[in-house]
Nucleic acid binder design. Structure first.
Lengths: 345, 345
DNA sequence: CTGAAAGCGCTTACAG
DNA sequence: CTGAAAGCGCTTACAG
């Protein structure tokens, strides 16, 4: 516990009070168990620690960082915090960061290139030790620049151009959904595909399309549309899909749960009953999926773990190590939104 | 754009190359438009700026902070990032922070007192200029300590013990829901009340109860239960409410949209149809509300603005000013989850 | 208009 | 076992 707020307690404060040199105090306070010996005599160590405790000494991180060139700060860029998936990933990152004495500076870039760049610059300017990008664009243009500047980074959720990334195996997840729907006999399906520049949407949709192609079914263009990953995006995309075709598909695959919920809303607006008239599947298994009146079939993506592992990889990089991308296994969660609907004959 | 990554560009780099003293360079780079005159001659200013641009000079924030005792860092403590409401508030905070050159360090404390304390200590140790608490407990015990330590702070979303807070007028919002349900003739209602230590839940529930009391209706204890604010909390609480009573209420008010969705799930499990057999209302008007198969009546809370204003107030505090709490006006959003259900006669 | 000095609080090899 | 020095990169009154 700190005491008064007026005279900040510094190494000097401690050194003066103890009749020691600041360097001695510093050494003691840094000594890791094991190398305690060379820091000072055990008596001195005890005295120093005691007073530091009493006065509530907290090292000034700016001073340390200035000397050591390490800030213990990690920047996390995400498209939006209000995206549950990213929020869960951030929680995983933060948890793992806390365990390592790192602090995270999380910022939303809204998938706006100029913002992404500005935030990355800001992070670099802040001398963060590393960056976690949750908002990578698949071509990785900005990343090439950051890479050249030398600050270590990893990607989470979205992969890009060979940089180390921790993702769900989105392609396989997309295939799982397709195989499930194929197994139920759905031949006329539509895809609410998300953004064309994010690997999540791309891979999920591609896995889905490939599985259908393997079954000899090519989706016509009017059964496939890009959109924002959120509720509104899914709603608008689904409305478009429905308006463009003479009749609705028998199933819709939305590449995120949020978009799937948007699809639910759009279908409702047209009196099409999810789970009865049409099958709907999402991706993520966020909290809403299991609570909907007709529970949502979806693909469970280990969001929290993606964040954790992302930070662990970055940690490895900061220690000078090498890391390889990780692709975590998805799991199909079957619920009534697909099982209670019959495909059209 | 920065260039190479090897030799970091410092004031010294610039000064040496230009044959100037670092202090002159520093002055120039700090000169705000208007007081440019006293920094250096306009020729010098031009030269300095040009070179700084070319070399991609970025002031080392650790060095500045060490000198100025200002970190331009603001800590934000929230119960959980995965709570949409808090995420939206964080986005508002971040947006306003960006405009002021402040960076935000956001961390989740999960409503665990030990974590809350640890994170607050961490923030203080990091020498943040100020703190925004989104996880305040109504008694404000920790806040009293922080206050004594002298770091400015404001609360968002939840108020506590007279500290400056930016909230939705939760009490009024709770009343709005009650008046709406009363108007529809609901006399047997239940409350999914959230956590007993957070002002959001307390005030929303109290407003609701008071309005019912004003109408001469006291809720029996088996129609009121506390719970976590999320989907699972709402689900479990609703299950409890239903199990404890011989028959279901004709309406349920959940103090968050997430909990309301959980209620929807629990009702579904028992075959009780929302909007037909029972009315359900939430609070927040998060993105899910409008998309549900039976759209959710809820209270719109200006989450983004709460965050923005929170940061603005903190900014005022950092400038040495005084601030007063703000209570923003809620708005009832009526949808079918309440209007299509008939109260039991 | 520009320079020189002092100092923010720390860390780290180096002496002794 | 402990001290002294140097220096991280910046800012800010103060001289001149």
């Amino acid at each position: 516990m700190g005491e008064v707020s007026d005279p900040p307690v510094t190494l000097r404060t401690l050194a003066d009070r103890l009749g020691l040199h600041v360097s001695t105090v510093s050494r003691v306070l840094h000594a890791k168990p094991g190398e305690t010996q060379r820091a000072a005599s055990s008596a001195t160590i005890r005295r120093v620690r005691k007073l530091a405790d009493e006065l509530g000494y907290r090292p000034n991180p700016h001073a340390s960082s200035l000397r050591t060139k390490r800030s213990n700060l990690v920047a996390v860029l995400v498209p939006r915090l209000s995206d549950t998936v990213l929020a869960a990933i951030c929680e995983g990152i933060e948890e793992a960061a806390g365990e390592r004495g790192l602090s995270t500076i999380i910022t939303s870039t809204k998938d706006v290139p100029a913002l992404r760049r500005a935030r990355a610059e800001l992070a670099l300017g802040q001398r963060v030790d590393g960056i976690i990008f949750g908002d990578a664009v698949v071509d990785g243009a900005l990343l090439a620049e950051i890479s050249a500047r030398g600050t270590p980074f990893v990607l989470v959720n979205r992969r890009a151009a060979g940089y180390p990334a921790v993702t769900c195996d989105d392609y396989v997840g997309g295939r799982m959904v397709a195989d499930h729907l194929l197994g139920l006999g759905h031949t006329d399906v539509a895809v609410v595909a998300g953004r064309p520049y994010a690997s999540t949407g791309i891979d999920r949709a591609q896995g889905f399309l490939d599985a259908y192609a393997d079954a000899g079914i090519e989706l016509p263009t009017h059964r496939f549309t890009h959109c924002a990953f959120d509720e509104r995006g899914g709603h608008e995309a689904t409305a478009r899909l429905l308006d463009q075709a003479t009749r609705p598909p028998s199933a819709v695959f939305a590449v995120t749960d949020a978009a799937a919920l948007g699809a639910v809303g759009a279908l409702r607006d047209r009196g099409i009953r999810v789970g009865t008239d049409i099958a709907v599947a999402g991706f993520g298994d966020t909290a809403i999926a299991a609570e909907l009146p007709v529970p949502l079939t979806t693909v469970r993506s280990p969001m929290h773990r993606i964040g954790r592992i992302g930070l662990e990889l970055l940690g490895e990089l900061l220690r000078g190590g090498q890391v390889a991308s990780r692709r975590l296994r998805p799991e199909l969660v079957i619920r009534e939104s697909t099982t209670s609907a019959r495909p059209r004959p």
